[in-house]
Design a protein around this nucleic acid. Structure first.
Length: 162
DNA sequence: GCCAACGTTGGC
DNA sequence: GCCAACGTTGGC
């Protein structure tokens, strides 16, 4: 069993369109696999870097408003995304070999909603978040790293006791 | 609905 | 291995 390089957990931000799968769906399901991600950079994070115990900011994209709305936690390390082998799934990938899966997912559970959801204006107004990947032009990565400082700032602004 | 930014594909 | 064309993302 490999020990993590650091004792402290890592932090991430996951984007989702609330009409497809929003915070309310995660609360309803109480646990879900974060699958259907079809981008190699995000895949690498899901497969190699995102670990059980890590913290996740849940972000609603293409929404009104677009906002960070909740905190989740990773409860299973990366494993092959089952939807890539499911012919009935919109995420089916005929080119992904069974013995060398191309796409990965992790499992997450909801921890708490932000008492104050943080929309983009609110995030942009916070100097401590000036370098957040989410706020960078053209940052489309749907699974992205969040620094410990950004994490603390967002939980404070969102009135999350942690 | 628009369109800028980006990732992927495929011709060469 | 380059790069134009294409498809997608996602804020506005």
């Amino acid at each position: 069993m490999a020990k993590r390089a650091s004792a402290s957990r890592s932090h991430w931000l996951f984007k989702s369109e609330p009409e497809t799968y929003g915070w309310q769906h995660l609360v309803r399901d109480r646990r879900t696999f974060w699958g259907g991600v079809r981008n190699f950079q995000a895949r690498n994070l899901l497969r190699d870097s995102i670990k059980k115990g890590d913290g996740v900011l849940f972000y609603h994209s293409s929404a009104e408003p677009t906002a960070i709305v909740g905190v989740a936690e990773v409860v299973a390390d990366g494993y092959p995304d089952p939807t890539q082998f499911d012919r009935a799934s919109p995420y089916f990938d005929k080119d992904s070999p069974r013995d060398a899966p191309r796409w990965y997912c992790v499992d997450i559970v909801p921890v708490t909603a932000l008492a104050v959801p943080l929309d983009r204006d609110r995030l942009r107004g916070e100097p401590a978040l000036a370098d957040m990947m989410l706020l960078k032009r053209g940052a489309r990565l749907s699974v992205q790293p969040v620094t410990a400082a950004e994490w603390r700032t967002i939980l404070r602004l969102g009135r999350v006791d942690a």
